[in-house]
Design a protein around this nucleic acid. Structure first.
Length: 299
DNA sequence: AATGCAGACAACCGCAAATAT
DNA sequence: CATATTTGCGGTTGTCTGCAT
């Protein structure tokens, strides 16, 4: 393979270097920023003598050179958090990275793409699925799932085959009792149901999942899904929610493993109903009628 | 030893939002 | 207020490295 490092091209202000950064370039950039401060990347590009584009300088600093960057293996705790955050937020890498001190969005994104996405896809491979965007209600307390007849908490065979892949986070006692309170309802969206055919490859399955995630985002929060706005969190008895930020609520929520760890996550309210799924589900909750009833052991 | 392949990570690019002029 | 510039994000591509053949 032909290796061509630091390919150059003509830019507006002369040659712009591309490709891998060399240690001496790192040093120049680091010293420049230590002297002049972070930001003004076009100025950095022009005045540092690096002959690198503004974006390239910014990216190099942000992802590799700035202080407190954590290098090395992603720990199990970090991986766990990435998975849970991704279920919650989707591909919002900068938001996810924001919860992992020292990790960058690029690193989280790469880790997801190389280590985690494939693993998740394998879970779904070979299953025929019907995707339902559940009827949801946004309230002061939770994003709610109102249409619990689909699937209902009943005992028919259909429900036995239900897998919640990306449902609401929270077990029955903590989340859904609250969510069923009609007083909290204010915005309601329609139910949309789509049927997926048997996926022929993991890629197709992935695409289907992405599509349904988008659908549910739209119907869920009526276009208010940016950042944490529109994402609301379960109640903790000892917390005065009027006194803390959305970010702090998220921290609290994510730290409550004992309550929520095994439950699926919001806001992707897609349900997958395998036509044939013979493995018994694990009753990993004392609350027989809770969501965990529908969570298979691998989730 | 040479080659091909796949995984992992770094870097680039296009676009949109935010900010400055 | 309109336009230009800068910044940030996420998808994609490129490069390196280790392993299998």
């Amino acid at each position: 393979m032909e290796k061509e490092q630091n390919i150059s091209k003509k830019g507006e202000s002369g040659i712009i270097k591309k490709g891998q950064w060399k240690p001496e370039e790192d040093l120049i950039l680091k010293r420049y920023i230590e002297t002049h401060g972070e930001g003004k990347w076009t100025t950095v590009s022009k005045k540092s003598g690096l002959m690198r584009g503004a974006k390239s300088c910014r990216m190099r600093w942000k992802n590799h050179l700035r202080p407190n960057i954590k290098r090395g293996q992603i720990s199990e705790d970090e991986e766990d958090l990435i998975i849970r955050m991704h279920k919650l937020l989707g591909n919002r890498w900068s938001l996810i990275a924001g919860r992992l001190p020292g990790r960058t969005d690029n690193e989280v994104k790469n880790y997801w793409n190389t280590h985690l996405s494939r693993r998740n896809i394998n879970h779904y491979r070979g299953q025929t699925v019907i995707t339902t965007t559940i009827n949801c209600t946004k309230s002061a307390g939770l994003i709610q799932m109102n249409d619990l007849e689909t699937p209902s908490m009943g005992t028919t065979s259909t429900h036995e085959n239900c897998i919640v892949v990306d449902g609401i986070l929270g077990d029955h006692s903590q989340g859904l009792h609250n969510s069923l309170n009609p007083d909290q309802a204010d915005v309601q969206s329609d139910i949309t149901t789509t049927t997926e055919t048997q996926p022929t490859s993991s890629e197709q399955r992935s695409d289907a999942h992405n599509e349904s995630t988008i659908l549910s985002d739209q119907s869920l929060i009526s276009g208010e899904s940016d950042n944490m706005e529109g994402c609301t969190f379960p109640d903790f008895p000892s917390v005065d929610y009027t006194m803390i930020s959305e970010d702090e609520k998220l921290s609290l929520w994510l730290s409550s493993e004992s309550i929520f760890y095994d439950a699926p996550l919001l806001p992707c309210s897609d349900y997958y109903f395998p036509v044939s799924y013979d493995e018994p589900f694990e009753h990993n909750s004392d609350d027989y009628y809770g969501w965990n009833k529908y969570v298979p052991s691998w989730l």
